[in-house]
Each structure stands twice: as structure tokens, then as C-alpha cells.
């Protein structure tokens, strides 16, 4: 999938091949300010939306689907989100936003009239595939089952863009892998795209073609996952080998009895002594060090 990645994800002109584009989106609360943020996802890919708790992930997703008022502009499939059809978007929250007492069968009857392209056959087939019983009440579903139910709903109205808010939080590794597999299957159709917010970055290395990293309401990175992983090098070694200028190059620098560790931009690796150990970071490393670096600034 990664070799299909061809476009930069910072939108400069309106491009209907983008599954979505955010342009200078802002939102202010008393204690938190989001943005202005801009990023986009070409159709046919999975984007992981990462950042620590409280960084603005959910606020961004809510702005995208117009659940909150916001500044700037959001385009969904080339159409402003104020007028974009919600039929094209499937929203998956960590817990279903359905009445707990409804059975899945009742839910089907309740949701169906709202979607012009609702497909009962797809819904039933997905439920069977997920092992979900039509007579089961929403409140009796496990978290993983709740996520699967919402995905089944989204697939049944033929959503082209799936927006998932922390769908894997609280899931065991097997259930998380299942969700990842589902998303990969979904983008098998090039018209389909996924934006997937999570703070469990290990879920994304396997699934996400693109990563957008948000930190304190600002975009720290948005681009191909491989670019992010190649952008930084994790370094560790003896702090006495570093000059103060070299220390300043290290993002999220921390020293401890065994030495120091941190992150350095790959281009700056050669500016550090050869004795400093360098290795490819994981997404987790990048999130942790960049977050630490932001707090130290």
C-alpha cells in the first residue's frame, strides 16, 4: 500500500482526490486552543492521528463532522463539511452512541430510514462475520464488539470515509489486530479512506500509510508514516561526550545514570559524536520524545 503514496498531505489547492482536507481549522475553549491546523489525506489510504491525551485529537475529529463549531474550513471529498453528505462518512467512537437498550435488530430498523443507500444484506453479512447477534442489546456488547457494530453500520450505508476516535483503546491485542485488519480491508477499495485517532501508536505502524501527529493543539507532523519514521533517529550514549550545542539538537533529551537518550533529526545525526548510538525509532519513541521536547520548551 505504501508504494501508492504519491501526494503531499499539506493541502495548498482544493483537490477532490483528497478524502478530506482541513484548512486552518481552529477551536477555542477556556483551557485549550486548537490550531490553526491544516492537513489532508488522499483517497484510498489510512491515516493515523496520534498525540498524547488532551492534544486535540477528538476536538479535530468533532470539527470535521460538524459536531462543534470551528474556524477554518473542512472539505470532505472536495465538498465543504457544512454541506457534505454524512452518508459518505462513517463515524466510529470508542463506545457506540446508540441507546443501550436497543437490540442490534432494532438499531437496524431505526438507522435504515436515515440512509438512502442502506444495504441490509451488507449489514447482516458483516454482523455474521463479526459474530454479532441481532438480538443482542447494545449495552451488552464488549468494547470491541461495539466498535465492530459501528463499523458494520458504516459499511452498510456505503461510507467512503471512516473517522474513528480511539477505536482500539481498552481492547486486547487480538481485538486491536482485528480492527486493524478491518481497516486494511476497507481501504482495499481505493475510494475508501480512514482517519484513525489513537494514542496506542503500535497499532498504526502496521496499518497507517500516513501519520498526523498533534501536540498541544498544533500539528507537529503530517505525512507518510515512512517519512516520519525516517525523519528521526533515536540516540543514546554518554552525556559527557556531548557539547551543549549538540545537546540542543536532541529532542526530548533526558539523562539518567545509564547515560542519555533522545531523538535527533536524521540529517543532524552526523553532528553528534560517532560514539553516540543511533537506531531507528518506533512511533512510540517519536511521540514520547517529541512530547517531552514540547514540554521542555
Amino acid at each position: 500500500m505504501t508504494d501508492r503514496i504519491e501526494q503531499a498531505v499539506t493541502p495548498e489547492t482544493t483537490n477532490s482526490t483528497f478524502a478530506f482536507e482541513l484548512r486552518d481549522v481552529t477551536k477555542s475553549y477556556d483551557s485549550f486552543k486548537l490550531g490553526p491546523i491544516s492537513f489532508a489525506l488522499p483517497s484510498g489510504y489510512v491515516m493515523g492521528f496520534i498525540g498524547p491525551n488532551g492534544a486535540g485529537k477528538t476536538t479535530t475529529l468533532k470539527a470535521m463532522i460538524n459536531v462543534i463549531h470551528h474556524g477554518g474550513q473542512v472539505m470532505i471529498g472536495g465538498v465543504d463539511n457544512q454541506i457534505a453528505s454524512m452518508e459518505e462518512i462513517g463515524v466510529v467512537m470508542d463506545t457506540p452512541i446508540y441507546v443501550g437498550e436497543w437490540t442490534i435488530n432494532q438499531l437496524r430498523g431505526i438507522l435504515k430510514p436515515f440512509y438512502a443507500h442502506w444495504d441490509d444484506t451488507v449489514f447482516t453479512a458483516r454482523l455474521r462475520g463479526f459474530g454479532l447477534d441481532l438480538d443482542k442489546r447494545v449495552k451488552d456488547l464488549s468494547r470491541g464488539m461495539g466498535v465492530k457494530l459501528q463499523i458494520a453500520v458504516a459499511l452498510s450505508h456505503h461510507a467512503k470515509l471512516l473517522i474513528l476516535d480511539e477505536p482500539t483503546s481498552g481492547l486486547d491485542p487480538i481485538a486491536r489486530e482485528e480492527v486493524g485488519d478491518l481497516l486494511r480491508q476497507f481501504v482495499g477499495d481505493e475510494r475508501h479512506s480512514v482517519l484513525f485517532s489513537t494514542h496506542i501508536t503500535s497499532d498504526l505502524e502496521r496499518v497507517a500509510d500516513y501519520i498526523t501527529f498533534i501536540l498541544a493543539g498544533r500539528i507537529a507532523f503530517s505525512g507518510a508514516t515512512s517519512d516520519l519514521l525516517e525523519k528521526y533517529v533515536r540516540v543514546a550514549g554518554d552525556p559527557s561526550a556531548l557539547t551543549s550545542d549538540q545537546k540542543r539538537l536532541i529532542v526530548g533529551y533526558s539523562s539518567h545514570p545509564a547515560g542519555f537518550d533522545g531523538l535527533v533529526e536524521a540529517g543532524n545525526r552526523n553532528l553528534l559524536p560517532a560514539a553516540v548510538l543511533a537506531e531507528k525509532p518506533s512511533l512510540d519513541d517519536i511521540v514520547i520524545y517529541l512530547n517531552k521536547g514540547a514540554h521542555h520548551e
Binding site: I65, N66, V67, S85, M86, E87, I89, V91, M93, I97, Y98, V99, G100, L111, F114, Y115
Partner: peptide, 17 residues
């Protein structure tokens, strides 16, 4: 009351209402 509990207002948005 139920909307307060499970954010049905968000459901209404996702249903395109």
C-alpha cells in the same frame, strides 16, 4: 435526558440530520 447520557446529539449529526 438520554442524550445527556450517551451524546445522542452526536448521533443525530452522524445521521445527517
Amino acid at each position: 435526558a438520554i442524550s445527556d447520557k450517551i451524546n445522542l446529539d452526536m448521533l443525530y449529526v452522524t445521521l445527517g440530520l
